[in-house]
């Protein structure tokens, strides 16, 4: 269990610390947007790239924010509880968080399959076919903007972010179990 916690936390910490610098990419893109507008050759892609960056920023940064304890809780009662009571409650309610993330992930997977041109209702089978069988991508979804980027990369990234969130939630659960056993975390 400790191995799992260490591995998940380390991966999410590294990715999160890398993601936190995306804010400077956003600044640069928006600054370029301003400059290109001032020189009357406005760029077509700036707003959308900034939006993609924002998505990457908080989807990949989310698990690290859990580690830092940045995700607020309503803590009027919670704050006054003992470590044990906190651990018990968290160990139970973290399943709510996981359910949310699993549904989100499922939606993300089918949306990603759609973005690769799969219109059926078994996205996992589609991905399996794609990777191991003779599956083929269909009409790939493109953004409706003039720049028309393909959407599967950002959707894949979102799925990855949600998956990492899920792993982080599991890691938090493991920590609570350790706490309940009276071990130091």
């Amino acid at each position: 269990m400790r191995g799992f916690i260490a591995a998940v936390d380390a991966v999410n910490r590294r990715l999160g610390r890398a993601a936190m610098y995306i804010i400077f990419v956003m600044m640069a893109v928006l600054l370029w947007s301003t400059i290109s507008k001032a020189s009357s050759q406005p760029s077509l892609w700036t707003l959308e790239v900034a939006q993609f960056c924002m998505i990457a920023y908080f989807f990949i940064g989310g698990p690290y924010a859990i580690q830092m304890g940045s995700h607020v809780r309503m803590d009027l009662f919670y704050d006054n509880w003992s470590v044990r009571r906190k651990a018990i409650t968290d160990a139970l309610t973290v399943f709510c968080l996981m359910v949310y993330l699993v549904v989100l992930l499922w939606g993300g997977i089918s949306s990603t399959a759609y973005s690769l041109g799969y219109f059926g209702s078994e996205p996992l089978g589609f991905f399996a076919d794609l990777m191991f069988g003779d599956g083929q991508v269909g009409t790939m979804e493109r953004s409706r903007t003039i720049w028309r980027p393909y959407l599967w990369p950002i959707k894949t990234l979102m799925c990855l972010g949600i998956l990492l969130m899920l792993l982080q939630a599991m890691s938090e659960l493991c920590k609570d179990i350790l706490r309940l056993r009276g071990e130091e975390v």
């Binding site: 009357s40 406005p42 077509l44 409706r144 903007t145 003039i146 028309r148």
Partner: peptide, 25 residues
């Protein structure tokens, strides 16, 4: 029309961009 950021339909935007219009969705 040159350099105007305009909200329009994707296909109309693709067509209009040759006249310097910047289509925004």
């Amino acid at each position: 029309l040159k350099g105007k950021r305009v909200f329009t339909f994707p296909t109309a935007g693709r067509f209009l961009s040759q006249f310097g219009v910047i289509p925004v969705t």
